[in-house]
Design a protein around this nucleic acid. Structure first.
Length: 479
RNA sequence: CGAGGCGUGGCUCAGUUUGGUAGAGCGCCGCGUUCGGGACGCGGAGGCCGCAAGUUCGAAUCUUGUCGCCUCGACCA
């Protein structure tokens, strides 16, 4: 098509410059605007609607497991933050501080929460007295601030929206089970709602959360072959319980420390959605979280009856999220905009169709186009949205598998990573030494993403040092 | 925090070398014609040239300082 170049002129091709493509999509799809402070972005209505849908679907899953929502203070006194050493050390470089109230300097400076383990712990300390009070399954939806050096929309902003669940339990087993349960919820949500397949596993000592005893993660693979941590769940053991003195009296009248977990997922998942599903025309949103699922575009809308028919079709599609684009832009403009915004289905309706009693329906994910009877619209849309949703997951799964390699030897490992291309996940054996992890990162810019739950035997020796290997690790360049 | 780049209508930028009446395209507003892949005509609105101090008769342009943004590294959801 002669106009093809012009059509996509506003979005940089992802093959040409993936980073620029990503930024272009964020802006052109109307998700965000930059603010005047580095790392703080405006999430526009369309972007926020995506987040709201994600929140709703996640929140439902949480609540099904007994989780309750709460809200905790934004500010944390420095003394409170400092009670658990590892957490402070982990976050110290990126904490933002409040040092004055009005015109008066504060006697103790206050941290803007980078995460709320300390606040929850401090609260639980007085809130829980008996085994009858356990478990506590609290979650909050809020924003946190971490003063990152380099920032990118959704992937790494200084303020980001998330949920943080913080639970306390009477037994170690129960807390560990909760950690796994929440990780499974993330994996399930990502696969079934966001159409993003992930690899589940445990973080190494080097990569685990500051203060955690064990950190579990779901790792997704972006279109450019880089990994993105898309949800984490931590088992804290009794570390915070001891630092913050969270005790309860058990059935046997003994004073005991609680067992604790936390788990979080962020607006970063929107970045994952963009980079997993997007293409050179822009965003592609999975139907279950798309703010608009069907965009009805009238052709020659000023002709008698066209707009009426468009509204009529909209009314037939009750139960779906439908928009009629009745602005006076040209149809070509509307097509491009619908594609840029990743709306899963487009219905074209013009005088020609009306005469035949048909309309044209086009899929965003693969541009497949077909003519259907207007009377069949509701059934066809319902069917197609399901198909698009599952096809998107299939496609993403195929990409993940295609981009996952096994490296048995240092040479094979090098061959995958010692260049700008050929990223992806690499499964390789590891001896368990931090030194090898550090060395691999230094040599290739590659980090251990996780020790997958589903272990395979790739080789007998470590891919770095050649000593006997303990675990198979999933390696990748990461965002 | 290191290295580079950039601050001029909403956006992308020209103008800065050589100081002399603030420009273009896109977008926006109005009217009309269009409409099956980013339409067109006519009319219109919109700028303390990031901020501050200096040099000068005169500064978007020169000097100094300062603030901010972008990209890439080290650190991180």
């Amino acid at each position: 098509m002669a106009d093809k170049k012009k059509l996509v002129a506003e979005i940089t091709s992802m093959d040409e410059d993936f980073t620029q493509w990503y930024t272009d999509v964020c802006i052109k799809a109307d998700l965000i605007a930059y603010s005047h402070i580095k790392g703080f972005m405006v999430i526009k209505p369309y972007g926020y609607a995506i987040w709201e849908n994600m929140q709703k679907l996640l929140d439902e899953r949480f609540k099904e497991t007994g989780v309750q929502n709460v809200y905790m203070p934004l500010l944390i006194p420095e003394s409170l933050l400092r009670k658990e050493g590892e957490l402070v050390n982990g976050f110290a470089p990126e904490v933002a501080w409040v040092t004055a109230g009005g015109t008066e300097p504060l006697t103790e400076r206050l941290a803007i929460r980078p995460t709320s383990e300390t606040v929850f712990s401090d609260f639980y300390k007085d809130d829980v007295h008996s085994y009858r009070d356990l478990p506590r399954l609290y979650n909050q939806w809020c924003s946190v601030v971490r003063w990152e050096k380099e920032t990118r929309p959704f992937l790494r902003s200084r303020e980001f929206l998330w949920q943080e669940g913080h639970t306390i339990h009477a037994s170690k087993e129960e807390a560990e089970a909760r950690t796994q349960q929440m990780l499974n919820i993330y994996a399930d949500f990502l696969a079934n709602d966001m159409a993003i397949p992930t690899i589940k596993g445990q973080k190494t000592e080097k990569e685990k959360f500051a203060g955690a005893e064990a950190t579990y993660t779901v790792e997704a693979l972006m279109h450019d072959g880089r990994a993105l941590q898309s949800g984490t769940s931590h088992f804290f053991g009794q570390k915070f319980a001891k630092a913050y003195d969270i005790t309860y009296t058990d059935k046997d009248n003994q004073l005991k420390y609680v067992w604790q977990t936390s788990w979080g997922a962020t607006t970063r998942m929107i970045g994952a959605m963009i980079m997993v599903h997007g293409d050179n025309r822009g965003l592609v949103i999975p139907p279950k979280i798309a703010p608009i699922q069907v965009d009805i575009i009238p052709i020659q809308q000023r002709k008698e009856g066209v707009l009426d028919k468009a509204y009529e079709i909209r009314d037939m599609l009750k139960g779906f999220r439908v928009k009629v684009d009745d602005t006076d832009k040209s149809p070509g403009f509307k097509f491009s905009e619908q594609e840029m915004r990743g709306i899963p289905l487009r219905i074209e309706i013009g005088p020609r169709d009306i005469e035949n009693g048909t309309c044209v329906i086009v899929r965003r994910d693969n541009f497949e186009k077909k003519e259907i009877r207007i009377s069949d619209a509701a059934a066809a849309v319902g069917e197609l949205l399901k198909t698009v949703q599952s096809d998107m997951l299939k496609k993403a799964k195929a990409h993940l598998e295609e981009m996952t390699y096994a490296a048995a030897t240092p040479e094979e490992f090098r061959a995958r990573f010692d260049n700008d291309k050929g990223d992806g996940f690499v499964k390789a054996m590891w001896c368990g030494d931090r030194a090898c992890e550090d060395k691999i990162k230094e040599m290739y810019g590659v980090t251990s993403r996780c020790i997958p739950f589903e272990q395979e035997h790739i080789a007998g020796t470590c891919v770095c040092c050649g000593k006997p290997a303990k675990k198979m690790v999933l390696w990748a360049k990461a965002y």
